[in-house]
């Protein structure tokens, strides 16, 4: 990749932005995700999944709900086709998340193959974190910045799965409970704090209300239905009743 002869020397190099991305590993949300993978490693072990398989699914799937669904399918002796369908259903949510993040991290010169590679590292936590922090990087360095952060985060969590699987002994229930509770409370505050537009807050409220309702009616499709109905309803509401500040575009 050629660079113009440094008019923007202050903006740094790709190596620098990769390292700056990596630095986000030392943060509360990264810690929260790691504790979730501590829980996953314990779950995999209790379910009789081999260590190598647990590490392999973390690397190739990199989405906790899908990994839990896969293990449930494996231990239940479910057929390949049926497991494929339930995992695919649990992962549809990644599509709109990837779509919005890609629009934010690509520059005119970014190649599609780069984006396809990077998309593998997008999951809920990395999406929330990237939405919050990607604007710290100038546009031409955003893919590098995201790679530095996301690839490191995935690699680190594969290592955590291996270590916890091998060394885990009884972690007190209160500690586990507190660790599990970190995830929703972090998502809740981070999404709200970083909402740059009123629409995001409306969509959040819609999802919070509709999620549990759809869970009672159709537990297999609750996230999907809440996302679609809540998202579209919030969008239409925001169009129909523009707020006192701004209209619809960011």
């Amino acid at each position: 990749m050629q660079k113009p002869p440094e008019p923007a020397a202050s903006q740094g190099t790709h190596l620098l932005w990769y390292a700056r991305g990596m630095r986000n590993i030392i943060s509360l949300p990264a810690f929260i995700l790691m504790s979730a993978f501590v829980g996953f490693a314990g779950f995999a072990r209790e379910s009789g999944i081999e260590l190598a398989h647990a590490a392999f699914m973390t690397a190739t799937i990199w989405a906790l709900p899908a990994q839990v669904v896969l293990i449930a399918g494996i231990t239940g002796g479910t057929t390949l086709a049926a497991v494929f369908v339930s995992v695919a259903l649990s992962s549809v949510r990644l599509m709109p998340m990837v779509t919005t993040l890609v629009a934010e991290i690509r520059s005119e010169k970014t190649r599609t193959i780069t984006l396809l590679f990077l998309s593998h590292f997008i999951a809920v936590t990395s999406w929330v974190m990237a939405s919050e922090r990607i604007h710290r990087a100038p546009r031409q360095f955003r893919t590098t910045y995201f790679a530095g952060f996301a690839v490191t985060l995935t690699s680190l969590n594969i290592a955590i799965v291996v270590l916890v699987y091998v060394f885990a002994t009884g972690i007190p229930v209160t500690v586990l409970g507190a660790l599990f509770f970190l995830t929703p409370i972090y998502f809740l505050t981070s999404l709200w704090a970083t909402a740059r537009h009123r629409l995001v807050k409306i969509a959040m409220i819609a999802g919070l209300v509709l999620g549990p309702l759809f869970h009672l009616v159709a537990p297999e499709f609750d996230l999907l239905l809440a996302g679609l109905f809540g998202g579209v309803a919030a969008f239409l509401y925001d169009r129909k009743f523009p707020g006192d500040t701004r209209g619809s575009a960011t």
């Binding site: 919005t100 999404l191 629409l199 999802g207 549990p212 809540g230 919030a234 575009a249 960011t250």
Partner: peptide, 26 residues
């Protein structure tokens, strides 16, 4: 904005599920 709205509502539904219908220690 529409896709962003859908993605946000989805993540919000994940939050609600984790709080109201948790698994494991919670």
């Amino acid at each position: 904005m529409l896709v962003r709205s859908i993605a946000t509502a989805l993540v919000a539904a994940v939050i609600a599920r984790l709080v109201i219908f948790p698994s494991g220690a919670l």
